[in-house]
């Protein structure tokens, strides 16, 4: 698939997404307007068991993904774009569930 330019495409779309997030942050900081972020409520807030099980599942997922990716691979192949498309969302969801949710409850 590499010869069909898919890697370039992934880099392009991910780069644009990061730029968009950075721009959103910039706009929010400039106007000092975080109203839409604070009242954001996740459903998992109301169900503590669900949150705990989510944390367990996510940490297991991180371990499994990392071991499957490490297996039979050299370090150069570890951070290919395809792997990053899987690792980044999983790690970020873990961060959201673990750190951000308790903040949003206040």
């Amino acid at each position: 698939m590499e010869e069909l330019g898919i890697q370039l495409f992934i880099i392009l779309t991910s780069g644009l997404s990061i730029l968009l997030i950075a721009w959103a942050l910039f706009v929010k900081f400039r106007e000092n307007n975080f109203e839409s972020d604070f009242p954001k409520q996740f459903l998992t807030n109301s169900v503590p068991n669900l949150r705990a099980s989510l944390l367990i599942i996510l940490s297991l997922l991180i371990v499994i993904t990392l071991t499957t990716i490490f297996k039979n691979r050299s370090i150069n192949e570890l951070f290919t774009n395809e792997n990053l498309l899987l690792i980044v969302p999983i790690v970020l969801s873990f961060i959201i569930v673990y750190f951000v949710e308790p903040l949003s409850r206040k």
Binding site: A24, L25, V27, K28, N33, S36, K40, I96, S104
Partner: peptide
């Protein structure tokens, strides 16, 4: 963008 929540985005 001001209406958008960063987490959701």
């Amino acid at each position: 963008i001001n209406k958008t929540s960063l987490f959701s985005l």
